[in-house]
Write a protein that binds this DNA or RNA. Structure first.
Length: 538
RNA sequence: GGGGGCGUAGCUCAGUUGGCAGAGCAUCGGCCUUUUAAGCCGCUGGUCGUGGGUUCGAGUCCCACCGCCCUCACCA
């Protein structure tokens, strides 16, 4: 490369704001930035090819070449065979020993030590090494060697700056501890907390694997509207907005279900959608106002085929994570899919064994000690536990007890399908042929969380419409305002929808399980946070 | 919405019974060519979340508010 063309300083460098409000540490860094400009370098870098991720640079270390160089470097005609690498990363540690500068650089794959000696490093680079601060992005080039204490190190021949950092980094040993700042300032958390980077990268890989799983099985990925004239497919309060061009209220989707089924009607037999869902409800460890779901529909399948897909998918994902995470096994990839277990808090969740299956009725009876059909007992127990029961139909009282007692009795370490929900609770599900009071629906529970339901989809338009009307009859005014009957969906069913299995999974929760994070905020890069109060209002 | 906890230097944290606002790291100035949270010498740095109150005196006690975390409730 030729001399850096920086006779002109960058515009940013010249822009000087009123300095009064600036923190002295920022002020100092601005001065340090000016010092870099003085060297004739742009503090904000430029294109650079050939940069290796740090883990790969480490992997390129050649012990034989390193030893040979150490033993023979003073001999005439010696050829240095140590691999030369280029890495870029943030300066995490910086020790200036005078004529030798030690640094630790971090990128998304890890850390590596850099040594810049006055003797061996290009002069401009050495001066840069002296001028830069913790948190600056640096590019280091040089041969890989080991120090006498065994640390793999790039013995820099050149140093260049990628970006000057005007903000002081978190404490170098404790890191970023403040949970609030970790969520608000994710751009700091990502580099300061390797675990955050690990989870973010794994999430991306997991979603890629989910796509691959369904792509390989001939499903088409589709996109359906987020903005809708009415919110359907689930029972949740939607967000509202205004579409100015049509002077109307629109709702953000609370599910993708009703549009995906329209596609089945149209003749797309296998579809799925991965996308953001918005629900205007409580925020807690398992709920973010916007979250990511996958819904899958398969013509001529049913809830059993969906169960098979789900179990296979989750086992495959768990296997993938186990192989990637267990560093000792990365080389061989040897993790038996049939014995995959992943930690989740205090639990070891077993994804290898066949998932448990239990019917809603069995689970109820096992947990409560009496049958869900025993109305007297059901009502007495609900009253005893202070649950809603007055004015509720029997089946809804049953479900109150089920959620309060039976769901919680499921072994959290064992993925469990709860099968055959009451039809009254499942308005979009086909009733069982021989037991119409039950629906062909299951719900999957892992780690104490509901991961998602699947149905054999209801495709009889008359029954569907009747169920909708029944459901709407019991709604209060507020709910009725945003839950208009989706007549077009009924019309679609009238055109004829093939029998189908349908599935919905909460991807954030799956990522929580697979990456061992107890809060949904830890698997969403930018979880919703109340904005910090400005100076304008209190 | 109820209950509990937290908020102090750029960061990580102490701060006793109400009595001068502290440490480490970082920064800044020196020294140092194999360090590993480098080390040594010296110096900086504060709206104690915000606003009231009690008091001779408040980081500390009281009230209100803001933000975050935990938990219960609501909610799929």
């Amino acid at each position: 490369m030729t001399q850096p063309a920086n006779t002109h300083k960058t515009a940013e460098t010249e822009v000087e704001q009123p300095g009064e409000s600036r923190h002295r540490l920022e002020e100092q860094r601005r001065e340090n930035r000016a010092a870099i400009s003085e060297l004739g370098l742009s503090p904000y870098g430029a294109r650079r090819d050939g940069i290796l991720p740090i883990d790969r640079a480490r992997g390129a270390y050649d012990e034989a070449a390193d030893r040979e160089h150490q033993e023979h470097s003073k001999e005439a005609g010696h050829v240095d065979r140590r691999p030369v690498v280029v890495v870029a990363g943030r300066i995490m540690l910086h020790r200036d020993n005078g004529k030798l500068i030690w640094m630790q650089l971090r990128d998304h794959t890890g850390d590596i030590q850099i040594a810049a000696s006055k003797r061996d490093c290009e002069e401009i680079g050495f001066m840069l090494g002296k001028a830069c601060d913790l948190g600056d992005v640096l590019i280091a080039e040089g041969p890989l060697m080991r120090t006498r204490t065994g640390e793999i190190t790039i013995w820099a021949s050149k140093l260049a700056i990628g970006a000057k950092s005007l903000a002081p980094p978190p404490e170098k040993w404790a890191g970023l501890q403040d949970a609030e700042m970790r969520y608000r300032k994710r751009y700091i958390d990502l580099y300061a907390t390797p675990e955050t980077m690990r989870v973010a990268a794994l999430r991306s890989r997991i979603i890629a694997r989910i796509r691959r799983f369904f792509d390989e099985r001939d499903f088409l990925e589709v996109e359906t509207p987020v903005l809708q004239p009415q919110a359907g497919g689930a029972a949740a309060r939607p967000f509202t907005s205004t579409l100015n061009a049509m002077d109307m209220t629109v709702y953000m989707r609370i599910a993708t279900e009703l549009h995906l089924k329209r596609l089945l009607v149209g003749g797309m037999p296998r579809v799925y959608e991965i996308g953001r869902i918005f629900r205007n409800e409580g925020i807690d460890r398992q709920h973010n106002p916007e979250f990511t779901s996958i819904e899958v529909y398969e013509a001529f399948g049913n809830y059993e085929t969906m169960l098979e897909h789900t179990e296979r998918l989750l086992r495959e994902l768990a296997h993938y994570v186990a192989v990637t995470t267990a560093e000792a096994d990365v080389e061989t990839g040897d993790v038996d899919p049939a014995s995959v277990k992943l930690p989740f808090g205090d639990l070891e969740i077993d994804y290898g064994s066949p998932f448990a299956r239990v019917t809603y009725a069995e689970l109820f009876e096992r947990a409560l000690g009496f049958a869900m059909t025993d109305v007297e007992q059901v009502r007495r127990m609900a009253k005893e536990r202070g649950l809603k029961h007055e004015g509720l139909e029997d089946i809804f009282v049953v479900n109150e007890l089920f959620e309060e007692v039976a769901e919680k009795s499921i072994d959290a370490a064992k993925p469990t399908f709860v099968m055959d929900y009451p039809a009254a609770l499942s308005p979009l599900t086909r009733p069982k042929m021989n037991q119409p009071e039950l629906a062909e629906r299951w719900d999957l529970f892992i780690g104490g969380m509901e991961i998602g339901p699947a149905y054999t989809e209801l495709n009889d338009p008359d029954i569907q419409e009747a169920k909708f009307r029944e459901q709407f009859a019991g709604m209060d005014e507020e709910e009725a305002a945003y839950r208009a009957l989706d007549e077009d969906f009924i019309e679609a069913l009238m055109v004829g929808m093939p029998p189908a299995g349908g599935l919905g999974l909460g991807i954030d929760r799956i990522v929580m399980l697979l990456t061992n994070q107890r809060s949904i905020r830890d698997v969403i890069l930018f979880p919703f946070m109340r904005p910090v109060a400005g100076s304008g209002e209190g």
